[in-house]
Amino acid sequence: MNAPLLRVAGVTKRFRGVVAVNDVSLDVPAGSICGLIGPNGAGKSSLFNLITGYLPLTAGEIWFAGRRIDGMDTHLIAEAGIARGFQIAKPFPELSVLDNVRMGALFGRAGPRDVAAATEGALALTGLADLADRPAMTLTVGYLRRLELARAIAQRPVLLLADEPCAGLNPTETEEIVGILRQVRDRGVTILLVEHDMRAVMSVSDRIFVLDAGSKIAEGAPAEVARDPRVIAAYLGAPEAAG
């Protein structure tokens, strides 16, 4: 198999003595959708912050497409092809949906000639084309999530980090988001997905990593992981009985 697109190697992050991410290693193969799951506070969002260069690592290395990216500036990592959708959708509130998405295209990897195409493509894929002129702050939660994805897709990323794109959505909306993610993957974008909705993440992922209290406790195909006693223990909060 080829070298992984994203390689997180022995990454640790400490905040004043608290270990948020503890010696985590994971490989995300190109063209896959990988799920990153774990209870609240497991370190999933921290890991995203480390990958995007928003926080510096305490130890370890992060490689992306054959380049070492830890220590690089956030905007350079974005330029290299990593886009991120936030857990709490962060659109630019005063700008229109169109301008929000265009902002992704302008600063993404679409060439200057392709800005319009990338913008329209992302709007169409996420079903936002009809709302293009609405100010972002007037959207409902469901559409904010789509906008968050649309902006990231417009960046024409190689790797999309999606942080709980389905949080707070009803089952129908969740289905739609999962459908969008599949289409994005089919266009050759690799996806690393943090998601609490187990059904969604299990159905869409090729591979799953499980974090608990900052450490990786399991990884594998969705079915294997679901059976793993350590994972069950972590989610049910049982004492560390399994080994």
Binding site: D73, T74, H75, A78, A83, F92, P93, D99, F107, R151
Partner: peptide, 24 residues
């Protein structure tokens, strides 16, 4: 220009702008 859009994104949310690849 790109600069103009970038400035707008800085005004709206500087951290998100950086994450989008804007050299803030």
């Amino acid at each position: 220009s790109r600069l103009g859009y970038g400035l707008l994104s800085i005004r709206e949310d500087e951290d998100t702008a950086r994450m989008l690849g804007v050299p803030t």
